[in-house]
Nucleic acid binder design. Structure first.
Lengths: 122, 122
DNA sequence: CTGTATCCCGGCGGATACTG
DNA sequence: CAGTATCCGCCGGGATACAG
């Protein structure tokens, strides 16, 4: 472990609003990634459905943060009615590997956690 | 994406205290993992130092949760003064791989995030 | 359709003091 | 030494209503 252990090092002092740690994940970030991993750009409303009817405010926040971090690109078409599409960037796609790794671990070891919790009651 | 997208599926209804989502990570969990990854058991006070003087309450919470999830084993020695040691379990060690994956990604792409954020200001 | 604007609540995480 | 007990502030995330 040559790296320092202070989580403060992951904070971005240049953030204009409130202190925003560098992190992949709000609650919905990974799932937005899953929704877009096939490469197909999707619209705001299209994303809401598979995300369990996430409220517009929360989806906007998630999308903005991901855009700000360079994970996805927002394309606004000058039409009426308005149309906006979101798609993963190359950087966003690079997250899919690590995400898969984490998901694989969870699928493989999730039951062990449940067992451990039951055992802990005793 | 054959998996469902509802984060509610990650919640453990059998948790006795408050609803506790199945998650690897509180703020300090990954770093506790780093502190113990060499296999050497460590004491409560030994852990506090590299963890940026984390308060005892927060360290206790982190440790308890990790123990409850089966990530580490707590061994209490009947001595005076009291001595308690924490060590990773096999399940805990299995987390190191995914953690390394995430850290590698962060080290490789962190600068791109910083760039993206700067670009976003414009 | 694609968002903002408000309001609100629960809980994580920290500070401080105390105990077996 | 190895924790508990209390108190508290912040902010992520949800509900609801409204706007361009």
């Amino acid at each position: 472990m040559s790296e320092p252990l202070d989580p403060a090092m992951f904070h971005d002092p240049d953030c204009e609003d409130r202190a925003q740690p560098i992190r992949v994940g709000g609650k919905w970030t990974a799932m937005v990634l899953r929704c877009l991993e096939d490469g197909q750009p999707r619209r705001f409303s299209e994303l809401r459905v598979p995300l369990h009817r996430i409220t517009p405010k929360v989806l906007t926040e998630t999308l903005r943060t991901m855009e700000r971090n360079g994970f996805l690109a927002r394309t606004e078409y000058e039409e009426n009615p308005p149309r906006v599409e979101y798609a993963l960037t190359e950087l966003g796609r690079s997250l899919i590997g690590p995400l898969d790794t984490a998901c694989s671990w969870a699928r493989a070891h999730g039951p062990e956690i449940v067992e451990a919790r039951e055992a802990y009651r005793a």
